[in-house]
């Protein structure tokens, strides 16, 4: 195998999950390209490699559509961090995280860290709206605005799960408060069987971002990258013990599941 390709081997995996139209691709695009532009519904999953200091971090931007739901656990396998994304203006998108997406993370690393991210904060938070990203102004404001307020299909929404903040099924478009997100984070930890005291605190792992203005986007990714570094170092140590483990691991996976 050529030397070049070996260097590119990712050290750690970060996965973006969340319902359709919450802005996963836009978040990643804002972070990598420093731009906000119209995106098209993602097909399957898109793989990006991000150089973070001496490390290669792979980021999987997954499709939120139900059509690709079956692939979620494959994208999550061995993930060191999962970014659970919702739309702050759409309560249902937060509920979907718990109903549809949380179970996909079963294949992630046991020490995987979770971030709960409310995107489109510019629509409810003046602070996020006024934020100026170094990358420049978003182009074509009005059109994007229109795209984002596209109606969600209410009929296809199941009733939201019981939670302290749970509204009646009717007002699913009410904004999501920070407390809702914090409460979800607590439930994620319980689902994973993790102690709240020994895990990362909710204040640190619940973000509100705006891919449109860039608000909190760098903070989100950089916080996560710093947090997964120990995981990288551990993996590197394991690799030193057996330098070929990466390849073998790949093969092993392939042999386990074959699907058509």
């Amino acid at each position: 195998m050529p030397e070049v390709s070996k260097m590119k081997k990712p050290d750690v995996k970060v996965v973006l999950l969340g319902d359709m139209n919450v802005g996963k691709t836009s978040l990643l695009h804002r972070y990598t390209e420093r731009k906000f532009r119209d995106t098209i519904s993602t097909v399957g999953g898109a793989f990006f490699l991000k150089q973070w200091g001496p490390y290669n971090i792979s980021i999987w931007d997954t499709a939120g559509r139900e059509q690709f739901h079956g692939l979620g656990s494959m994208y999550c396998r061995g993930a060191a961090a999962v970014i659970l994304t919702y739309d702050v203006t759409n309560w249902q998108s937060l509920a979907e995280l718990e109903e549809r997406f949380l179970s996909l993370t079963d294949t992630a690393n046991h020490d995987c860290i979770y971030a709960v991210v409310g995107n489109k904060a510019d629509l409810i938070d003046p602070k996020a709206q006024m934020f100026q990203d170094s990358g420049g102004e978003p182009e074509d404001r009005t059109e994007l605005e229109k795209d984002r307020t596209e109606p969600q299909v209410l009929s296809s929404c199941p009733t939201p799960p019981a939670s302290p903040a749970s509204p009646s099924g009717m007002i699913l478009h009410k904004p999501v408060t920070h407390e809702d997100a914090v409460a979800l984070y607590g439930r994620i930890l319980r689902y994973k069987g993790l102690e709240e005291k020994s895990s990362l605190p909710a204040e640190k792992m619940c973000f509100e971002t705006s891919a449109k203005t860039g608000y909190n986007v760098d903070t989100l990714f950089e916080t996560l990258f710093d947090l997964v570094l120990p995981s990288i170092l551990r993996k590197r140590n394991e690799n030193q013990a057996s330098p070929t483990v990466d390849l073998e691991e790949c093969r092993g996976k392939r042999a386990r599941t074959s699907c058509c």
Binding site: H29, V43, G45, A46, F47, F48, D61, A63, L71
Partner: peptide
């Protein structure tokens, strides 16, 4: 156009 896609 961005990234590498893997899709069924």
């Amino acid at each position: 156009q961005a990234g590498e896609i893997w899709t069924p």
